[in-house]
């Protein structure tokens, strides 16, 4: 797989200028005399300024598929602006309601059509794999985006160890079901527990990550601790959080969002500027921390790596 590997130092300075100039143009047009102060969009471009971020950790990791003007979204946004309906539907609900969520002990069940099913304690589950830090773009289906320095293991490792049978074509993931700890599960908002799925080849793709951390730290609870899926070319809702079960199946699983609104959320959910959500265009997005909108890229900028997975498929029908 050909992924450009640039050290962060090579991408930061340029974007600083790009963002700042773009922002000042916009500010000039809305004419509020914004030019004097330090624009908020710079916060994203300069996440390492001493003092500015308090004790926020530094972004680290190998950039995958980043554009020249992509810089890590600040820690405060990555960990304070979350869709995790198990802890409430407001963007700041998860950070508030997940503080006491217990992520140890944690067991992951691997089952279904595979040779080596089993229940694993989290540490045993992760131990055989080398943990990596990778910086990915993240595009939410709601038309906002971030750049997130994840830490995790390739899902492929886990799959290879489980040895799926020839009949296994899909993988289904399930979030913990625990309404006592997850207040959102007491409301009939989605069909709990949350489930998601990938085709086996998508799950085995080298970009697909089982994340255990962000910004070089263990995942904060609101980000899906202790174990979540990250599929950077798909909309964020595919990134099922707090995973307790990984199951190999023959038929395409119905995800929680497909069940809730089948005309709005499909199984594939590949980022696609050409295919609108019924209620809004997906052609552009707002990067959190920036004032200007950005064009949305096919497969969220990972087309070179993943487009071949879908050759011959009608992506308008398979949204």
């Amino acid at each position: 797989m050909a992924t450009p590997k640039l050290p962060s130092s090579e991408i930061t300075p340029e974007s600083t200028y790009v963002d700042r100039r773009k922002f000042l143009v916009a500010a000039g047009i809305i004419g509020a005399g914004l030019a004097g102060a330090s624009p908020r969009s710079l916060e994203g471009a300069l996440p390492f300024l001493p003092g500015q971020q308090g004790q926020a950790p530094q972004a680290r990791g190998t950039p995958y598929g980043l554009q020249p003007n992509d810089t890590p979204t600040p820690w405060a946004d990555v960990t304070g602006y979350n869709n995790f309906y198990e802890f409430g539907t407001g963007k700041d609900d998860p950070a508030r309601n997940a503080t006491n969520f217990r992520t140890r002990p944690w067991t992951v069940k691997v089952d279904g059509l595979c040779e080596k099913p089993g229940d694993y304690g989290l540490e045993d589950f992760l131990r055989p794999s080398a943990v990596e830090d990778r910086i990915y773009r993240m595009r939410c289906v709601e038309a906002w985006s971030m750049v997130i320095p994840w830490r995790g293991i390739p899902l492929k490792d886990v799959i290879d160890r489980a040895q799926p049978r020839a009949s296994a074509r899909f993988v289904e993931f399930t979030t913990l079901m625990d309404p006592r700890q997850m207040p959102g599960q007491r409301l009939p908002i989605l069909e709990w527990p949350y489930t998601e799925g990938l085709r086996l080849d998508e799950a085995r793709h080298p970009l697909t990550l089982l994340a255990t951390g962000v910004y070089g730290r263990d995942l904060p609870n609101q980000n899906g601790a202790p174990l979540r899926l990250v599929v950077p070319w798909k909309y964020g809702f595919k990134g099922v959080k707090s995973i307790v079960r990984i199951r190999f199946v023959e038929r395409m699983p119905t995800s929680a969002w497909m069940a809730a609104a089948p005309s709005e959320y499909g199984f594939y959910a590949n980022v696609n500027p050409e295919v609108d959500h019924p209620r809004w265009s997906q052609a552009t997005e707002r990067r959190i921390g920036e004032f200007r909108r950005r064009p949305t890229l096919p497969f969220n900028g990972y087309a070179d790596q993943v487009a071949s997975l879908y050759s011959g498929m009608d992506l308008r029908r398979n949204y």
Partner: peptide, 18 residues
């Protein structure tokens, strides 16, 4: 909105425009 974008405040959270 003005303050969040120009002064680094977080009155309106991560997506002040929305």
């Amino acid at each position: 909105i003005y303050s969040d974008f120009t002064r680094g405040t977080r009155f309106l959270g991560s997506d002040p425009i929305k």
